[in-house]
Amino acid sequence: MEKQVVVIQDLKKYFPSKQGPVKAVDGVDLRVESGEIFGFLGPNGAGKTTVLRILTTLLVQDSGDAFVAGLDVKKEPNKVRSHIGYVSQSGGVDRPATGKENLILQGQLYGMNTAAATARAEELIRLLDLSEFADRIVNTYSGGQRRRLDVALGLMNRPTVLFLDEPTIGLDPQNRANLWEQIKKLQQEGTTIFLTTHYLDEADALCDHIAIIDNGRIVAEGTPEELKKQIAGECITIGIDNFEEKAPEIIPLLKKFAFMREVNQDGDHLRLYVDDGAKAISEVLELLGKQEITLKNITLSAPSLDDVFLRKTGRSLRDLNAKEGKEK
């Protein structure tokens, strides 16, 4: 396990409920290599945060094994904590204090003397570009500035692994892109990063390796490119009028095309995986016209991580995220 800084074997964690046990984590196996950015991708409630809390010693598993930096998280939690940094979704800053004061306090909590904590704080301020606001009260920070300070706090003890739970949730696109740059910079400095996310573009842009979890189980694992290659060809997405009535009629006809690899239903749209997208669109449009089916929209794209998620689970992660956003 020298090169594998996180190892999980048949990990399980169930929670009681009136309807029976909720299998939050149901037999998960994972390996994270030293120096990589590992992405744990899935919808809210899939089990991502439960796994993260076990790895950071905040929760004890029911069964299975979990090792971080070669240490058993269940048997050696104190040693594990000295090797990790953890940034939760809510963060952990003291808002009435300045950013620099927060960093120095964090260092002192790890046992550093004031001089060592101050030196490390100044190092992180330079590394994460915090100098413009490090001496301001945290209450005055923007969401992106506060999140960068959260990451700096997680790095004070020079961790072997930095765990980030939904690091960019709630940030606007500019601040998300800025934090992505900081995360990549940390990797270049030699930090292994384990992050959870339900943002497809984030996982694709940042991660060297991805595991997709759904209902407590790993449904796919690999590099972003390896996962997308599982969905061969190109993807045509079509929306039609009277979808529920017309889809059962049109799907068997679409499957007869020689270029058609796969047809999936995604909410009120169809996703068609084809060999030659430009030629396929022309023939699909001709078929819809013959069947007198009204087209609402059509797009052609390369396969995405959402296509992988749809194939593995029968649901679109992008649509699940959009639905959750509306419900909030």
Rank of each mutant, 00 (worst) to 15 (best):
V6K: 06
V7G: 02
I8M: 02
I8H: 03
K12P: 02
K12V: 05
K13S: 11
K23C: 13
D26R: 01
G27K: 09
V28W: 14
L30T: 04
S34E: 15
G35M: 09
F38K: 00
F38Y: 11
L52W: 03
Q61G: 04
G64S: 07
F67G: 00
G70S: 02
K75A: 13
N78K: 11
N78P: 07
R81E: 05
H83R: 13
H83M: 02
V87Q: 14
V87W: 08
G91C: 09
G91Q: 13
P96E: 05
N102M: 07
Q108T: 05
Q108P: 04
A121F: 05
E122M: 03
D129E: 15
L130M: 07
E132A: 14
R147E: 01
D150P: 05
R158F: 06
T160Q: 12
F163V: 13
L164E: 08
E166H: 01
T168Q: 03
T168P: 08
I169Q: 06
G170Y: 03
L171V: 00
P173W: 03
Q174T: 00
N175E: 11
R176Y: 12
R176Q: 10
A177E: 14
Q182E: 12
K185C: 12
E189L: 02
E189A: 13
G190A: 10
T197R: 08
L200V: 08
D204A: 09
A205R: 06
H209V: 00
H209Q: 10
D214K: 10
N215V: 00
R217H: 15
V219R: 10
E226P: 06
L227M: 06
K228S: 15
K229V: 10
G233Q: 14
D241V: 09
E245G: 05
K246T: 13
A247W: 03
I250V: 15
K256G: 09
A258I: 05
M260L: 03
H269T: 15
L272G: 08
Y273P: 06
G277I: 09
G277V: 03
A280H: 06
E292L: 12
L295N: 12
S301F: 02
S304K: 09
L305A: 12
K312V: 06
L320G: 00
K323V: 09
